[in-house]
Write a protein that binds this DNA or RNA. Structure first.
Length: 810
RNA sequence: GCCGAAGUGGCGGAAUGGCAGACGCGGCGGAUUCAAAAUCCGCGGUCCUCACGGGCGUGUGGGUUCAACUCCCACCUUCGGCACCA
């Protein structure tokens, strides 16, 4: 009887649905596991094979845990705001909400066809007004705490496209699409003060069970560095500026200073003689995107004509303007120490500026000497003879004493630009007073952006207006600005204007894990009880592409909610695992243009959901990048069919010793492998069991039952079918995971290798706990071994019970 | 350039100090079949040898150890991330 995957799989999927099998329930005092997948953006293309990889992994853990009598929360939802639906709307006029719902329906059908054990009653959709309401509510909490604010941010504005472009969309001052000119222009934006949490976002990474690389990436992104801020006075001018340095110990070696082109002091200190050159340079830098600037490492810059005074030795140092100094980091100004900083060294070489050695240890005429542990301070007054770490402390203390500087911690992390000039996102729930003679919808008016007002929480959600045309348009306020009847409203006789920017796609994914714990709560975003019950997320699985932004933003929101007392943990995701990318059969990244995309629907159709699940888990370690190989699928198809054939045979209560031991070994191995998420080797162990049972007809009942239960997390439809065939009326989803007898899970005699001089020459079968004398005797009796011992003196004999025997010969 | 991960049969991979190559794909031989597919059984690192057996073998070169895919040092290659952050 062959396995008819279409009938069997749909039957069990219907059973699970009808019986609400996977509804999450929390029992007082029981252990719990919150097992979360990164929810998908429901694109028009449907599921790709990368989705079922992570989702199968978590599903295995979830199913296994339920059988271990653990309360499991395993939800799924949709990160459904985003550009593609809006782009499609611009092209076709179809409302993004329509496209989004169609795509969600497709994704849901596909996920259901794979037999994942989600609690679908908890499904959330970030575009649902009931969800948007609480995203907006969290924004208001940030706003009220002073963490959401407006600022003029220099953005890449493309007038032709009528939109703001990301840095990577700008190439050489032109838009990537269409090659239209792009201006750097300040635009009012909503910002979130993530920098206020920089220290905690870094220090609280400690103790998270996350991939090492991801922790490192987050740390580098936050980019904490310790140093000093030092004030330099401008000579013959009443201005001064502050610089940030991590090498205050090299202060005596500062031979010039550099201001970023955007630095406010540039305009006032530039001498008449240098004015034209400086103005030209500043104007040119202005229209270069930051990425562009960074692309060319050749140093450029212009002398301002002004000098500053080195605060420790009174030496005059020329002040230059150069774009290798960024206005967005530190103070936008540096002291340049060409002797001990590579960038300053290159700049000094390019412009013939003096290079002074203040730390002995290298040759500053050849290259900057940047070692900050070794070396000896010279030509540095009171610092002479010290090593850099000591000198740093000394000079910082001195600067603080003299009121010339302070110790300072600086981060690379910048505040988060949170507004988008788009339609398909959550409206920012803020409005502003309007001054107008008459009706601002038709008359000239002024919007007081400096007086933002929060929408009343009771009025949330603030819904998007209906629009005919979703194009960004020529107004940098975004498409919502055109919905004048929505934008302007009258309250208590005064006119107000709503914010027309929307939130970025990150917003919804920042807190969805919290909505899952209490998704239908109509009065709160989630209840404290639900939070106590289920948080934190115990296992979070998703792609490494979210290693920085999503995870950082989400952690930031969580910490704010923690400070406000809405959650009890400082961190949302206790354990994180990234599934590795699945490449195409050609070993290249799957993409439409390469034509190497595998559609999981096709595999489900041809071979069934269990095969997709088994294959993706059998390919290799979950975290590894690995190519798809269609020919390999045959292997798991055979396994599935054999397991079915063997499992459907009539059973016997009799069981031979070897089979019994193998069953117990397999129970042990599969359980341990699931716990360390080594699914490929767990499946391998199941293959060994099935291959062994192949020859047994009738099959021992103990073995058949174990097989059904053990295989079920991986191939749940197969598991249920076998289980039912063994006479069980109910689903095995909550049947206790079989226990193994440790005595049976190991053999009592083992075959171990015998080495002579480190080379294996033969094997002997020994009792597991045989003593050394017995082991040696057995080994010497082995002719293959004896041959190599002949005429040799045995210097040493090594015996590791159950492992190895080794004669060390002279 | 810096940071992170990884290099094992024809291929995906297993073994985290103890018999390298579990398990699977492909290949080869056999059973079944009129024949084929499917299925089942068996054999598969490489070199020398008819064989018995032996030499070599986990990116490269060194080292530690009775014993190294595994630990240490240096290097090469691939993938991912960052990249003038003072």
């Amino acid at each position: 009887m062959s396995y008819d995957h279409r009938t069997i799989e749909t039957r069990w999927q219907r059973y699970w649905d009808e019986h609400d099998t996977f509804r999450a329930r929390r029992r007082e005092g029981r252990p719990k596991l919150y097992i979360l997948d990164m929810f998908p953006y429901p694109s028009g293309a449907g599921l790709h094979v990368g989705h079922p990889e992570g989702y199968t992994a978590t599903d295995i853990v979830a199913r296994y845990s339920r059988m271990k009598d653990i309360d499991v929360l395993h939800p799924m939802g949709w990160d459904a705001f985003g550009l593609p639906a809006e782009q499609y709307a611009i092209q076709t006029g179809t409302h993004p909400a329509v496209t989004t719902q169609q795509n969600i329906a497709t994704f849901k059908r596909q996920l259901k066809s794979l037999g994942f054990s989600y609690d679908w009653s908890r499904e959330v959709d970030t575009t649902d007004p009931d969800y948007v309401r609480w995203t907006q509510w969290i924004f208001l909490q940030l706003f009220k705490k002073g963490l959401a604010f407006q600022d003029e941010v220099t953005v890449n504005w493309c007038p032709t496209l009528g939109t703001v472009l990301a840095n990577e969309e700008v190439i050489d001052g032109k838009s990537e699409r269409g090659n239209h000119p792009v201006e750097r222009r300040p635009l009012r934006q909503w910002m979130l003060r993530i920098t206020a949490y920089a220290d905690r976002l870094e220090s609280e990474l400690e103790g998270l069970d996350w991939p090492r690389g991801t922790l490192v990436m987050q740390k580098e992104w936050i980019g904490r560095s310790e140093g000093a801020e030092v004030t330099f006075r401008v000579k013959e001018h009443d201005g001064s500026f502050r610089i940030f340095t991590t090498r205050p110990d090299t202060l005596f070696g500062a031979t010039y200073c550099v201001l970023a082109p955007e630095h406010p002091l540039v305009a006032t200190i530039t001498t008449d003689a240098q004015r034209t050159a400086v103005d030209d340079y500043v104007a040119k830098s202005k229209n270069r995107a930051e990425r562009d600037r960074a692309a060319t490492k050749d140093k450029t810059g212009v002398f301002t004509g002004a000098f500053a005074e080195n605060p420790v030795n009174g030496q005059p140092v020329p002040i230059w303007v150069a774009d290798y100094v960024l206005m967005t980091y530190g103070t936008g100004a540096i002291m340049a120490v060409p002797g001990h900083d590579e960038r300053d060294w290159e700049f000094a070489k390019a412009f013939g500026l003096p290079i002074v050695e203040v730390v002995k240890g290298g040759d500053v005429t050849q290259a900057a000497f940047t070692d900050c542990e070794d070396g000896e301070l010279v030509e540095s007054g009171m610092l002479d003879g010290l090593r850099p770490p000591e000198a740093k402390k000394r000079i910082t203390a001195f600067l603080e004493e003299q009121g010339l500087g302070t110790k300072r911690v600086q981060y690379k992390l910048r505040d988060w630009v949170f507004s988008r000039q788009r339609y398909w996102g959550e409206p920012i729930p803020i409005y502003f007073p309007v001054s107008c003679e008459g009706d601002p919808r038709t008359s000239p008016h002024k919007i007081h952006y400096d007086q933002p007002l929060a929408v009343e929480e009771a009025e949330l959600p603030l819904r998007l207006p209906e629009l005919e045309d979703f194009k960004p348009g020529d107004d940098p306020a975004g498409p919502l600005a055109r919905a004048v009847d929505w934008r302007f409203f009258r309250k208590d006789g005064r006119w107000y204007a709503r914010e027309t920017n929307t939130m970025p796609q990150w917003a919804g994914s920042c807190w969805y894990y919290l909505r899952f714990i209490d998704p239908r709560n109509a009065t709160e975003a989630w209840s404290p009880a639900a939070e106590r019950d289920w948080m934190p997320v115990d296992l979070y699985v998703g792609g490494a592409e979210h290693a920085v932004l999503h995870l950082l933003y989400s952690r930031f929101w969580h910490k704010v909610l923690f400070d406000l007392g809405f959650v009890k943990d400082a961190e949302p995701y206790a354990r994180l695992v990234h599934q590795g990318l699945i490449l195409g059969e050609d070993g290249e990244k799957m993409s439409k243009s390469r034509g190497n995309v595998i559609n999981p629907d096709d595999i489900v159709q041809a071979h069934g959901a269990d095969v997709v699940r088994l294959y993706e888990m059998f390919m290799g370690p979950l975290e590894a990048v690995k190519p798809w190989q269609s020919t390999q699928i045959q292997g798991v198809v055979r396994f599935r069919d054999r397991a079915y054939t063997v499992g459907m045979r009539r059973t016997t209560e009799a069981i031979d010793e070897a089979t019994r031991r193998l069953v117990h070994k397999t129970i042990k191995k599969v359980g341990e492998d699931i716990e360390r998420m080594a699914f490929n080797t767990a499946i391998s162990a199941l293959m060994v069991l099935v291959n062994h049972l192949q020859a047994q007809d009738p099959v021992p009942r103990e073995a058949a039952e174990a097989l059904a239960l053990l295989v079920s997390p991986f191939a749940p439809h197969l598991g249920e079918e076998l289980w039912q065939n063994l006479g069980h009326a109910a689903t095995l989803a909550y049947h206790p995971w079989p226990a193994f007898d440790p005595a049976l899970a190991t053999d009592d005699t083992v075959e171990i290798g015998v080495q002579v001089g480190g080379k294996t020459r033969g094997t002997v079968r020994l009792a597991k706990d045989a003593d050394e004398a017995a082991a040696r005797e057995a080994a010497e009796a082995n002719p293959d071994v004896a041959r190599f011992l002949e005429g040799k003196t045995i210097k040493k004999f090594i015996y590791v019970p159950g492992r190895i025997l080794n004669f060390v010969v002279g």
